[in-house]
């Protein structure tokens, strides 16, 4: 199922991630304290935007060449297809992003333990973005201007992830424990994992009709 997704264009969202995150230090100025304060938030917002950039392509290509129809006609349940798509999205978008994030952390002069927490929060948070994103991508499939609609639909759903993800890093920098934020993030991951593939599968069936 994942073999269908060998694309060269996934790099664009990684570059986008790095670019957006790098613009802030340039725009705000090189004061380490300010940078340290906004760092986690900026990295997280860039991660959200990068996921939005790569989402429309998740299903659109398959929809256009008809392979989506064929995949829906295989004996496998559509839920598995939706889950596979989310997993594929996370592998090409989330994992590389995770690997780049420490460098961005250094750029914002975050302390080492904050960078570790940043990576941990991204590790838990980015699969949520992929799962929620697959719902949005399935819903807006085949519509005109689906990119904008997708952004409007999905960004509000990303808000809790952003709050707890960036909050975890802020907490560790303020000297308190990040545990509560991370466990809430984990709880969101489990519940989206249970719900999102079903919604995405139902949305896919509607879109293909």
């Amino acid at each position: 199922m994942l073999a269908a997704r060998r694309r060269g264009d996934w790099l664009t969202s990684q570059f986008f991630f790095v670019m957006v995150a790098s613009m802030f230090p340039l725009g705000i100025g090189p004061d380490p304290n300010t940078l340290r304060m906004i760092g986690p938030g900026v990295v997280w917002v860039s991660a959200l935007l990068a996921s939005l950039l790569s989402l429309p392509r998740l299903l659109a290509e398959d929809f256009r060449d008809g392979s989506l129809e064929q995949m829906l006609l295989t004996p496998q349940p559509a839920v598995l297809l939706a889950l596979g798509k989310s997993l594929a999205h996370w592998l090409i978008y989330g994992v590389p992003l995770l690997l780049i994030s420490p460098i961005l952390g250094i750029q914002f002069s975050l302390p080492a333990e904050a960078i570790a927490i940043l990576m941990l929060s991204l590790l838990i948070g980015t699969p949520i973005l992929s799962l929620l994103g697959s719902v949005g991508a399935a819903l807006t499939l085949g519509l005109r201007g689906s990119g904008v609609l997708l952004t409007l639909l999905i960004l509000p759903l990303y808000v809790p992830v952003l709050i707890f993800g960036a909050g975890a890093v802020d907490a560790i920098m303020a000297g308190t424990s990040a545990e509560s934020h991370l466990s809430l993030l984990g709880a969101i991951l489990v519940s989206t994992l249970l719900v999102a593939p079903w919604i995405a599968a139902a949305a896919l069936k509607v879109s293909i009709e």
Binding site: D65, G66, S67, Q70, P75
Partner: peptide, 19 residues
């Protein structure tokens, strides 16, 4: 599930990957 195993469909789109 049985039906999809025993049925093959070709629509207007070929459903093949260009790459």
């Amino acid at each position: 599930e049985t039906y999809h195993r025993e049925m093959a469909y070709i629509g207007h789109l070929n459903g093949i990957k260009d790459d």
